[in-house]
Design a protein around this nucleic acid. Structure first.
Length: 616
RNA sequence: GCGGGUAUAGCUCAAUUGGAUAGAGCAUCGGUCUACGAAACCGAAGGUUCCAGGUUCGAAUCCUGGUACCCGCGCCA
């Protein structure tokens, strides 16, 4: 299936043109060219019309003819009906198409419905989106921010296309690290009923540190003939670490065996951690809650069956005591079981893939995880293919996709830290965003002419929150995901430029305009007499294709770019075309254009998980 | 050492996946408000798309070889 097929919308002039050229190509060159892409594109230059067909050059090459001659034949054969003016040939064989204005008006009227022209997918299978991925006993940090908001945005886009989406928060809620914290808290006699997340976070780090031996350091010290004092120090550290690990291992065994007290304490850790997570998700306007939790503990009984499957089918081998899966095209295998019999991250991920594809029946599993784990997912996906979990039970092909994203950096281009050098928590970052947003909104509300003037503090705060959070989310989603970016609140919160607040402003401005008009007639004919109206209409018509494109490419920045272009085009229209002061029919037509633009902006921002307040 | 990513205007980023004259936003300079919200608009200036080859009607995009920075590389998750 080609991308062009999946992005076409009935009633959209572009798909009609595409179909017409497809027929023309078959008529001239025969049925073996039925699959040839007519390469209909929006023009980059208005002098070239609205659309161009770029197929003649490539096809001419294939059949050994001159491109311009073939383009001539295409012009003779193509039947665009009354969609467009007669097309023209330019350059090496481009065919330029200019739509008739009434065609555009009719298409816009057709798009002006609740669905905004977005066509639903007819695929009934669910899609799993793996996002957020928090660890129990740890604070959320900025690394979780991207996974969460990107994953949520992708989920919304897929849902908008009518797909059933299962958001899964693959919690780190099981295994040795958790047992280590539990052991440490119990040894310290901590009152778990009064436990705070900050205390828990500290305990986690201390537990990690106490169990971390310095085997490498000891080896290096011996090699470098370090002094006996240093070596003794390292040896003590190592034996302490061994002790800590073995105590944690005992705790884990007891937990696995269902020790009542331990299980109760374990649940307490989860509660303390997750309460803060839910708060953050709520603040972020992300559609997730307890129902999305499916962590490592869920898969704990699925790990051994994964090993059994690989062993029974001879898909793995033992290497230095560990169980590994080999790949044909690379040296390093994937470890799925440790020498000591323990399972690994990869084992848990394989269990999740098995569950998602074989139990849930998902035909697409999307992992929104840091780009640094690219190799890991390549291994795990290939292992899943070896295990034949890349097909659903009924034989449908499964797409396993890793959506890698870059890191958030500080002004020094190094991973974001606080001024004191500790890792920045997500909570503090978000509260800064809300605070900045509120400050900006409050400042604008000072002006007596502002629609927010006189609003109470709660009203200002609600808008400020939407603006601050929207600024952070838009900045995160608006450039290519794999790139690292520098976190710069000043730039994100700016109300001018390609930012969230700019789009929110464009939306709010239309809201007050429509409110002032008061008499929108949803059945009034759309008339596109001014060129700015025509341009705006053409941009509006692209929306369904953009949504489809993002659903396929999983690249939210394309939607951001589109929305910015729409807001920009609207500004041009708004500047050139009076709405409220226009004559009856023109006024009604323009009000419909305003209303449609407003709804596309609200819908598009909604797909990004960004609120669109009616005033700000 | 091996593997992956990135490199585009002074800065931050796009470029419909090989199409026409590489576009936006900041910043700079100039012009628009007795107002449909100036949080906006119009215009100017700004480019060896990291370098060198190659493929073809056509390359920021594909291929080969380099350079710089970032990341990953078996019993952690």
């Amino acid at each position: 299936m080609s991308a062009t097929t999946s992005t076409s919308t009935p009633g959209d002039p572009r798909s009609a043109i595409q179909a017409a050229f497809s027929r023309a190509i078959t008529a001239i060159l025969g049925d073996e060219f039925a699959e040839a892409d007519p390469l209909i594109r929006n023009t980059t230059n208005p002098d070239h019309g609205d659309f161009q067909c770029n197929a003649a050059m490539g096809l001419a090459k294939r059949i050994g003819r001159k491109p311009r001659d073939l383009a001539e034949d295409l012009l003779q054969a193509v039947d665009l009906g009354d969609l467009a003016d007669p097309p023209e040939i330019a350059g090496p064989g481009f065919i330029n198409i200019r739509l008739r204005t009434d065609t555009i008006a009719a298409a816009v009227q057709q798009m002006d419905a609740p669905a905004l022209g977005v066509i639903p997918s007819d695929d009934p299978r669910p899609i799993v989106v793996d996002l957020c991925g928090v660890n129990v006993a740890k604070q959320m940090h900025v690394g979780h921010l991207r996974s969460t908001i990107i994953g949520d945005a992708l989920a919304r886009v897929l849902e908008r296309r009518g797909r059933a989406v299962v958001r899964e928060n693959h919690l780190g809620d099981w295994g040795l690290p958790i047992a280590m914290v539990l052991h440490r808290l119990r040894e310290a006699g901590t009152d778990l009923d009064a436990l705070t997340l900050t205390e828990l976070d500290v305990a986690y780090r201390e537990a990690q540190a106490s169990a971390r031996d310095d085997a490498a350091g000891l080896r290096a010290a011996n090699e470098r003939h370090a002094g006996p004092h240093r070596i003794a120090e390292l040896e003590a550290q190592q034996s302490g670490a061994e002790q800590a690990r073995s105590a944690a291992a005992d705790t884990l065994v007891a937990l696995q065996q269902g020790d009542d007290e331990l299980v109760r304490d374990w649940n307490r850790l989860i509660d303390v951690t997750m309460q803060a997570v839910y708060d953050a998700l709520d603040l972020l306007n992300v559609q997730m809650g307890p129902e999305n939790n499916r962590g490592e503990s869920f898969y704990r009984d699925h790990l051994q069956p994964v090993i059994d499957h690989f062993e029974k089918n001879k898909l793995c081998r033992t290497d230095d005591g560990a169980l590994v899966v080999d790949f044909e095209d690379r040296e390093r295998p994937l470890l799925i079981r440790k020498r000591d019999g323990g399972f690994l991250y990869a084992t848990s991920d394989l269990a999740a893939i098995h569950h998602r594809t074989q139990e849930t029946g998902a035909d697409r599993c999307i992992y929104v995880v840091d780009a640094r784990q690219k190799d890991h997912f390549r291994d795990v996906f290939d292992a899943a293919r070896i295990a034949q979990w890349d097909r659903t039970n009924d034989g449908h092909e499964v797409q396993l996709v890793h959506v890698p994203f870059g890191s958030i950096l500080g002004p020094d281009k190094k991973p974001l830290k606080t001024r004191s050098g500790t890792n920045l928590t997500l909570a503090s970052l978000l509260s800064e965003a809300v605070e900045r947003g509120t400050r900006e909104v409050a400042a604008r509300a000072e002006s007596p002419s502002a629609p927010t003037h006189g609003l109470d503090d709660a009203g200002i705060a609600a808008i400020g929150r939407a603006v601050g959070i929207g600024a952070v989310k838009y900045a995160d989603l608006s450039s290519d995901l794999v790139r690292d970016y520098v976190f710069d609140m000043d730039r994100m919160i700016a109300f001018e430029g390609d930012t969230g607040p700019y789009l929110q402003y464009a939306h709010a401005r239309i809201c007050t305009l429509l409110e002032k008009a008061g008499d929108l007639d949803p059945a009034a004919p759309i008339r596109l007499e001014d060129n700015q109206e025509r341009q705006l209409a053409l941009v509006l018509l692209r929306y369904p294709g953009v949504v489809a494109d993002v659903a396929a490419s999983l690249e939210p920045h394309r939607l951001c770019g589109y929305l910015h272009e729409l807001a920009d085009t609207f500004s041009g229209f708004y500047q050139a075309c009076p709405v409220l002061k226009a004559e009856d029919e023109i006024r009604q037509s323009r009000l419909r254009l305003c209303d449609l633009t407003r709804r596309v902006l609200e819908d598009g921002l909604g797909l990004l998980g960004i609120e669109a307040p009616p005033r700000m």
